[in-house]
């Protein structure tokens, strides 16, 4: 223990002082991203082979860190305790004498550390990626781009990835309303109260789209023109709600193309029925 570079000592209180109050080169700023990060750190400072981890030694150091963590950050200690349990289990498995080879479903020759090693190796690879990301982030911060100015109403940039923008849905609605000749209607016009609710309309649209399958329907197909403004608004609201819930997708090949709608999960039961 005493030869370990990390300055771990056996007493918890001393460990805390060692780790956080003295200028120990390893732990002064050591904030770990989780149990795997801590384990990799211990493997590194002890200079042991990741494929042949001295479980007893590493577990002991690991538990000391957890004890310290318990005192300073109880909230995040849980994640570390789970790994501690795993380590202790591995340790006890390794202490057990190997039972004689019997043909069973479990391969007795398997190293109890194998799964942990696999996890550590995978995690270590992502840590390597993070280094690359850091470099890229640094380089990227040296680049500046022009932000798009407000475009005139006549032009908008194509919406990325074929998805229709809210403003395009809005202009489609306006086009429909004007086609239905409803724009000039006086606001005093009496509309008979309709029974159809948003919920029912959503179910109806989903049904239509389900039938249409992957082909989908055009935005216009959802409106049964000519019809009262109420129906158009209701259908449009249903459309927005379905989009918000992520049950349907609106897309457009290019800014001039008709907006098409498709249902997202075909196998999903229509819960509005």
């Amino acid at each position: 223990m005493e030869t370990v570079q990390g300055n771990f000592t056996t007493s918890n209180t001393t460990a805390r002082h060692t780790i956080f109050n003295t200028p120990s080169p390893h732990f002064k700023t050591a904030v770990f991203e989780g149990p795997l990060d801590l384990l990799l750190h211990l493997i590194r400072i002890n200079q042991v082979d990741i494929y042949d981890i001295p479980i007893a030694q590493i577990t002991e150091q690991y538990l000391q860190y957890v004890a310290v963590l318990e005192e300073i950050d109880l909230a995040s200690v849980g994640e570390y305790v789970l790994m501690a349990a795993t380590l202790i289990e591995i340790k006890s498995r390794m202490l057990l004498p190997r039972p004689p080879q019997e043909a069973g479903e479990e391969d007795e020759g398997e190293d109890p550390r194998a799964e942990l090693v696999a996890r550590l190796l995978e995690y270590q690879q992502y840590q390597g990626v993070v280094e690359a990301f850091r470099t890229w982030e640094e380089m990227r911060k040296k680049l500046f781009f022009r932000t798009a100015m407000e475009h005139t109403d006549d032009y908008i940039l194509p919406v990325p990835e074929g998805e229709a923008h809210v403003s395009q849905l809005y202009s489609a609605l306006m086009r429909l309303l004007s086609e239905a000749g409803l724009e000039e209607q006086p606001i005093t016009a009496v509309t008979p109260r309709r029974r159809l609710s948003l919920r029912l309309k959503m179910a109806e649209i989903l049904r239509h789209l389900q039938r249409a399958g992957e082909e989908g329907l055009s935005f216009e197909a959802l409106f049964d023109l000519p019809c009262p403004r109420y129906d158009i608004v209701l259908a449009f609201l249903s459309l927005l709600e379905l989009l918000r819930q992520g049950r349907i997708l609106a897309f457009q090949e290019n800014p001039k193309a008709p907006i098409r709608l498709i249902i997202i999960a075909l196998e999903e039961p229509n819960e509005y029925e």
């Binding site: 498995r93 398997e110 109890p112 799964e115 942990l116 696999a118 190796l121 390597g128």
Partner: peptide
């Protein structure tokens, strides 16, 4: 993205972690 070799480290089953009991003796 930099090439990494995920085959040497197969994905760990989420279930094992969720249940807090990784089947340690299970071959990968």
């Amino acid at each position: 993205l930099p090439a990494i070799d995920l085959d040497t480290a197969p994905p760990v089953s989420a279930e094992a972690i969720m249940h807090g009991n990784p089947s340690l003796s299970t071959p990968i």
